[in-house]
Design a protein around this nucleic acid. Structure first.
Lengths: 236, 236
DNA sequence: CGCACAGTTGACGCACATCAACCTGGGTGG
DNA sequence: CCACCCAGGTTGATGTGCGTCAACTGTGCG
């Protein structure tokens, strides 16, 4: 419990343990997971910390009558859940949306905070970033219509994927099913389909063979009321 | 920046600085604020950490065309925003919904993490609690209808207020305007009014003179699909 | 080749928005 | 102390975005 993670790093590795990247690349085990695979199940203990490496995954909530909402879409580089920091039980499920590769590090022993130079701050900034993304999604769920919601989702994903070099200025791989987009934006997949059609017929995007192309990003961002500022990390 | 907060505490105060309560009661300044007062404005620097002491407040988001969503309702004991932990700028506004008393402590100097025995863990648990509350609100915004949403809001507030001794098993002060309930649940105040009427006429609640009374809590929780587990702190 | 799954489209109904009028009570100034 | 005021609450009439149900169409995979 008070052993450092650094001791688990390969000897002679000169890197400081001061970023989330270091934490994972030091000693993670990689796993390939299929589509629709449960990474974390509620009420389990947090045995490991997970980082998504490729593909799309989700944090989600279920209601007893089957209604579902995806509360977070995870992209490569994202930490699946921060619950491992507090020795608590898993509070919400995490599942893949596409085939994924994830990195896993045991949190037994958990890193001792004294041995993290900038890691605590990095984790904190990640959590707060997730937080503003969640706020923005609430704005979508409560106040944007379906077309605006889709436009906003695309702008957000492009920005986040761009930060990890997985999107260009106008295109990226979007392999999420329309059902899952619906459960992300609080509408049905049928309505997602119709709203996609609107965006396509307006000439703003095309989406085919798992690739989204944005033809007029400024217009898409205006339609979505998207302001990239909330995603930018001030200090990195 | 590396001075401890503890040094600012009155000398001879024997308490350990290991809870959020200690952090604030040590050296806070109290302020009375009117209804609709902005506690934190976006892009300001975080000069202080704030805790709500009485009344209701909110974190919210605005769109350029005037649409608004309240993303968090704050009750007494809640930290207004955790942004002070990272020296970042305020990312979302915080405003009172009713007249409030708030506690303020300067975060200049910020507490040094080495001097916090259990404080870091306590803050982390608070943040994660806010997080699951946010997830649950997303479920409301995306998947509950207005009557279920109101029922859920009432169950949640009762539970959270009960934890700070401000609610009994079946009643508490609810002085939030219907406009603000609407902006919390993603509907108009007109529709809030009609949904309240449904809950009243079903005999589940009465709401008068700023007091909400729950007549059949089990039924209300069933209607709302409310599971109090997500609010309970496992380790406190 | 055919099965399964995801996407597409149409017809119709409902939950909630919008607009507008009216009510109510608590606070304020004359 | 009454008259006024006005923010917040209440209600009705009507419009619309999205849900629901159901059929059909790709399309990739064994």
């Amino acid at each position: 419990m008070n052993t450092t993670v650094r001791s688990a790093l390969p000897a002679g590795d000169g890197r400081r343990l001061d970023s989330i990247h270091d934490l994972f690349t030091g000693s993670m085990r990689e796993r390939e997971l299929p589509k629709r695979y449960d990474v974390l199940r509620p009420d389990d203990a947090h045995q490991s910390a997970y980082m998504l490496l490729t593909g799309y995954a989700s944090r989600y909530r279920l209601m007893s009558d089957g209604r579902r909402l995806i509360t977070t879409i995870l992209v490569p580089g994202d930490v699946c859940d921060f619950g491992f920091l507090t020795n608590s039980r898993v509070r919400r499920p995490v599942a893949t949306l596409t085939p994924c590769r994830i990195g896993e590090i045991s949190c037994n022993p958990l890193p001792d905070s004294a041995s993290w130079p900038g890691l605590a701050a990095a984790l904190l900034r990640r959590m707060q970033r997730d937080d503003v993304i969640a706020d923005e999604r609430m704005l979508t769920l409560g106040r944007r219509n379906a077309v605006e919601a889709l436009a906003h989702l695309f702008c957000e994903l492009r920005e986040r994927l761009s930060a990890v070099k997985l999107a260009t200025a106008d295109s990226f791989a979007l392999t999420i099913a329309q059902d899952d987009m619906g459960d992300t934006l609080g509408v049905t997949s049928v309505h997602i389909n119709r709203s996609l059609k609107v965006l396509r017929e307006t000439g703003l995007i095309t989406l085919e063979h798992g690739t989204l192309t944005i033809h007029d990003r400024a217009a898409l961002e205006r339609l979505a009321h998207f302001d990239p500022a909330y995603l930018r990390d001030e200090q990195d």
